[in-house]
Structures are given as structure tokens and as C-alpha cells.
Design a protein around this nucleic acid. Structure first.
Lengths: 190, 190
DNA sequence: TATGACATGTAATCTGTTACATGATTAG
DNA sequence: CTAATCATGTAACAGATTACATGTCATA
């Protein structure tokens, strides 16, 4: 019974996540991207407008043309129930090793949208799963490092060490974020 | 007089960099990618073989078919003089803010290949330039954080903090790497 | 002699980038 | 009234992913 949904790109999810709390036009979205560090997820109209239309074709957002008196044509998009479901399953899905290696930014995007979309408990679960995955990948990297160490040039070894440090930073951050969330849950501050 | 070269992708440069110390076949290269953390730069034959052919068309590598008695067909690629020049100018080119935001992995790739390709002095210069760029971007991010802080949900704020920490890790790493290189240069160890 | 790993590739499809095009509205 | 900016898009192209196709050699 499950129809195989065509895949949604990172950009698509970024758009869904931004539209979820507040409907917006393509132009609004573009401005959010280009004016903040979200520009990592593309900020060109040639990516955003087609992505919005794809989401619309899949029934995940619905665009309505605002036609108040004398307004320029401005199409405002809203997330549909279906779109919200997709967003939630994307956020709560498992964190694969491949996510960690090839789609780190997408992981952070998932977490950034987690709380408003799926609540603090799910956000905390996400962090714990991420901590585990990052820890495991870290020990793989460290092992790989001891193997490659001697034959590579110094700059190569240093570059590899940066890779390790980056995942250490991720791991430490998950620990701190978990602590923060647990404090919030105990303290009862929303 | 300067003919506008078609652009080379990250993967293209990764291949050039790997071929520079030692000629290899497409399959060898694929194995390097898939067996190490270089798999971040794609590991599928559908990316690597076409990329090699593009490089060949541009005269940056040359493939020769090894036909020793009874061998399977195996095409070994070597970097040409032109290819080496391209690699060097890619490595030594300026580090733009855009590189830092959208192509961080490519920056590390440039550095990883720096020492064998352009020597320790250039590698050190690269690090210093990177330290500066990272420091500047960091203060931008910190500023953006104080602005966005209050209105965003906790998970959004935490995700942003991770972004800051990641660039802090990069910055700290450049400082350590610079220190390492300076020690090596003084100490005279190759 | 059949199986599996080696080695190389191609085709379809999707997405993003770049660069341009269009009209509507506001500021000077 | 004209320039800029708002808001929306399209077309051409490059590159990557996925999935498949092909042939060769070693070994059981």
C-alpha cells in the first residue's frame, strides 16, 4: 500500500522546515537563505522555485496567490498535513553512518527543526542517537589514522587530524546539548 | 591569450591530487575512495570514470592502457604537466568566504595535497590564510547568533551553536597546524 | 565449467548553478 | 518618468546518483 515517494532533497526539507512554523513566499524563503548562514543550502532562485514546485507536485506544500487590492502577485506556500508528516519522519528517522559521512549538514538541519516539529522528547532522542553514531564513527576514524599515519605527507596527516577534530567537536556538542535538554525538561521551562 | 578552462569539480581535483604522487587506474582510485574516509568525495564508478575522461579531454591527465602479456585491460592515468599546473594553482589560490561556507571539504583537500605539490612554505602560507578567513567568518557567525538568539526555538539555537563550534575547531586546528609546520621548518626535519 | 571478484564502463534521471527574462511597484 | 528593487520565474548546462551492462581472470 505504501506508494514509493520520490525523494526529497536537502533543500526541499529545508524549505519544508522553514514553512512549517510560518507560511512564506519563495522570495521570503530566498531572503532567509541568503541573509543567514542557511545559505549553505543554496540561495539561488533557480534552485528554490523549482524545489517549491516539486514539493507542490508531491502535495507537501500548497501555494496560494495572495491577491489583496493592488498587491503584486505573491504566492504564499503552506505545509500540508502530508508535508508535515514527511518532515516528521525525516527528522525522526534513524541516523545512518552515511548520513554522518556525506550529509552532516542535513543532520543538523533535522535537529534544528526537531523541537517545533516533533517536540523536546524526540529532539532529545535524536541527540542521543547522534551521540552514539558520532562516537562510533570517531573510533573508526582514529583507527584509520593510526594505519595511514606513517606513509602520508605531513599536510595529509594534519588534514586527517582535522577530520577527527571536527567529529570530536560534533560529539562534544551532542553531549552539551543533551545536558541542556535534560536541564530544560527537569526545570520545566519550555 | 588565456583560454577559459572549463571548471574542474572537487572530485576532479581529488583525482588529480591522488594521481600526482603515483599513477593509478580508475579502479585503484575508486578503492582509495571507498576504503578510506575520502569516500566523502563520491565513490561511485558513475562519477569517477566520467570525471577521469573529462580530465583527459582537458589534457590534465593521460591514460595509457597497460598491455603486458595476459593482463586484463587496465588503464593507468598520469597527471600531465598541465594537470600539475592546474592542481598547483587550485591549491595556492585565495581562500574566499564562499569556499569556507560552501566548500569546506574542498579546502581541506587542497591542504592535504599541498605539501607534496607545492612545498612546505606554500602549505604554511595556506594555513595562515585559512586561519584569517576562519577567524573572520567566526566573528560574523557569533554576531549573527546574538541577533537570532531570542526568537528561535532551543533546537535551532543549539544547531547554530554547533555551527560556531565547528568553525572554532577549524580555527584552533589551523593554529596547531601552523605551530607544527613552523617547528618542522626550524627543526629542519623534512 | 561455473562462480565470484576484478575492472571498466553507460544510460536515465535528478538536482543545482549560472545567467538571463519579465512585469509590477516605489523612490527620486 | 525613469531607475531601482521587488518578486517571480525559465533555459542551458554540468555533475552526481543509481542501476545496470560487459568482459576477464582465478579458483573450486
Amino acid at each position: 500500500m505504501k506508494r514509493k515517494q520520490p525523494k526529497i532533497s536537502s533543500l526541499g526539507y529545508a524549505l519544508l522546515g522553514l514553512l512549517q512554523p510560518k507560511p512564506a513566499s519563495g522570495y521570503d524563503l530566498r531572503k532567509i537563505f541568503s541573509s543567514t548562514s542557511m545559505k549553505t543550502y543554496s540561495d539561488s532562485p533557480g534552485a528554490i522555485y523549482p524545489a517549491l514546485r516539486r514539493l507542490e507536485r508531491q502535495g507537501l506544500v500548497r501555494g496560494t496567490i495572495e491577491d489583496g487590492a493592488g498587491l503584486r502577485r505573491r504566492q504564499v506556500f503552506r505545509v500540508t498535513a502530508n508535508g508535515l508528516a514527511q518532515l516528521n519522519s525525516w527528522i525522526t528517522g534513524p541516523i545512518t553512518p552515511d548520513d554522518l559521512i556525506a550529509r552532516e549538514k542535513e543532520i543538523l538541519l533535522r535537529f534544528a527543526f526537531a523541537e517545533p516539529a516533533v517536540g523536546t522528547t524526540a529532539a532529545l532522542a535524536f541527540l542521543k542517537s547522534l551521540e552514539k553514531a558520532a562516537g562510533e564513527y570517531l573510533s573508526e576514524l582514529r583507527q584509520e589514522f593510526t594505519i595511514m599515519n606513517e606513509q602520508a605527507p605531513l599536510s595529509g596527516r594534519l588534514a586527517f587530524q582535522y577530520g577527527i577534530r571536527a567529529y570530536e567537536a560534533l560529539w562534544h556538542w551532542t553531549r552539551d546539548a543533551i545536558a541542556t535538554y535534560e536541564r530544560v525538561q527537569k526545570g520545566g521551562v519550555s
